Amino acid sequence: MPQRDTAPPRLRPGCSVFTIEGRGTALRDTDGLMFDIALPEEAIRGALTGADGAGPEVLAAFRNAGHLGARATWPEDRARVVVLADESAQLCAALHAAGAEPVAAPADSTAPDILERRPAAVCAWSDGPAPRSWLELDALVDHGVAWQRASREGRHVLVEPVAGDVRHSDVVARRLAAAGSGHHHLAEFWAQHGAGRALHGDEGADAADLALVVALLVADLRAWALGSRAGESAFAEPLPPSRRLRVVGLDTGAISDHPVLPVPASAP
C-alpha cells in the first residue's frame, strides 16, 4: 500500500503568523491584511508543525478561513503555450520553470500553423516595433486562444493585454488615437520600420533587458492561467492582464500601466 502523506498542513504562501508582545498572536493574510487571532501561538505552531497534542480545532479554524494551502500551480488545460520569438530559449525556459508547457515556433508563423499545435495561449516577443503579421494573429482569439504580445520601440517595451477581447488591433487603434496630432508620426514610424527604411541607434534588448521582459510576460501569462481573484486587499488592486497595456522603460526600470478597452465596431 502507498504510504500516507503525514506532513502537517502548511500556511498558504503569503500568510504569516507572528506575536505582538503584550497583545497576543496575529496573522498577515495573502492580501496583506493583518489582524489579531484568538488562538494561542503555541497551539498554532504545534498544529502547523505537527507537534504532539495539537488540537484539530486549530487547523479547522485556519482551513475554514482559507489560510491553509499550497502554492498555486499552472493548470494543465492552459499549460501549452506557443512562443513566437527570435530569442525563444530564455522565454521557453522561464515558462517551463513556472509550470507551463512552452513550444517554440517560427516568429513568422501563421494562425493556421499555430492552431495545429493546439495551444491554450500564444506568447509573441519582437525586439523592435510590432510586425504587421500580429494583426492577422488576432484571429487566434476567435478560436479560444489567449494572445499575448510584447514589442520594443526604442528603449521602451510595450507589454500588451493578454487577449481576451483586447486584441493587437485594438491596441494599435487606441495608441494612434492617444497620440493626437502625432498619430502621423507614429504610423509612419511603424511603416518605415516595417519596410526597413528607418535608421535606429544601438537600442536592441541585451540580456538584462530580455530578462526583465521575460519575467513580465511570464507573470502576466501565469496570472491569466490561474485566473484573477478580486477582494479586499492592503495593496492597490492592479489592472488585470487582459485590460492592461504596460510600458517598460529599459533604461530606467520604470513601469507604467494603462487601461485598454476594445475598440467598438462602427458603421462605415
Rank of each mutant, 00 (worst) to 15 (best):
G154Y: 06
G66Q: 06
T30Q: 03
A120S: 15
D138H: 03
D165C: 08
P13E: 10
R132K: 14
T49W: 01
W224S: 02
H168D: 06
L245H: 02
A124M: 10
E41C: 05
A70P: 12
A61R: 11
I37W: 01
V260E: 05
A139P: 00
S109T: 09
V122T: 10
V166F: 03
N64I: 05
A100I: 04
E188Q: 10
S151I: 01
V81F: 06
A150S: 05
H184V: 14
G253I: 05
A60T: 11
A163H: 02
G53K: 00
A65N: 13
P131E: 06
Q148M: 02
A98G: 02
D5T: 10
R63Q: 15
V17N: 05
F235P: 09
A94F: 08
E160T: 13
Q90V: 15
S181W: 12
V248C: 01
A191H: 07
M1R: 06
R197N: 13
G194V: 02
R80V: 08
L261I: 13
A225C: 03
A54D: 01
A265I: 15
V157I: 13
S88G: 07
V213Q: 03
A208E: 12
A105H: 10
A85L: 04
A85S: 13
P131T: 07
D257I: 11
R10C: 13
S133L: 10
A150H: 00
P56E: 01
D127L: 09
S266H: 15
A198D: 03
A179Q: 08
L39V: 07
G144V: 00
P9W: 11
I20D: 03
A7H: 13
A215P: 02
A211T: 13
L261G: 14
L140M: 00
E203V: 15
D127G: 09
C15K: 05
V122F: 11
V213F: 05
G53Q: 00
A150R: 00
L186F: 07
P13Y: 11
T73H: 12
D36V: 14
E101L: 11
M1Y: 05
A254K: 07
G204W: 11
R132I: 15
A234K: 03
A179F: 08
V263H: 10
S126C: 14
W125K: 02
L33G: 03
A187G: 09
A211F: 05
A177F: 14
S151C: 13
R117F: 14
L217V: 02
P268K: 13
S233W: 00
P238N: 09
G249M: 00
G154V: 08
A236D: 12
D202Q: 14
L176R: 11
R23W: 03
L135F: 08
V214I: 08
V248H: 01
P102S: 05
G196N: 06
P240S: 12
L11R: 06
D142I: 00
P268R: 15
A173L: 12
A61C: 07
L210G: 11
G204V: 15
R12M: 13
E42N: 06
A267F: 15
R174C: 14
S169P: 03
R246L: 05
A265N: 15
A124T: 08
L176V: 10
S133D: 09
T19D: 09
A61I: 07
E21M: 06
D170F: 09
R12D: 07
L212A: 12
R244F: 00
S169L: 07
P112S: 11
